[in-house]
Amino acid sequence: MSDLKQELKEKIIEQLNLEEISVADIADDDALFGDGLGLDSIDALELIVMLDKDYGIRLSDPKEGRKIFESVQVMADYIQEHRTK
């Protein structure tokens, strides 16, 4: 599980071009949107594509992302339970 969380932090930084943020800056429970990492709506769409591409999870309703992308911890729990690859 901690490997998955580490992997997610690395992917978030790389795919969302968070140039000035390192893995150590993201705590497992930090909010990804709003006051946390300050991600925006395009970032949310990128994360939805990442779930599909890397973990075989296709969200039928983009609004589901709001709950799933709450933090790295919540994302990791969701991926662990639903991943198909």
Binding site: N17, I42, D43, E46, V49, K53
Partner: peptide
């Protein structure tokens, strides 16, 4: 087929 929204915009 994984178009990137961040590229598309």
């Amino acid at each position: 087929y994984f178009p990137s929204p961040a590229v598309f915009v």
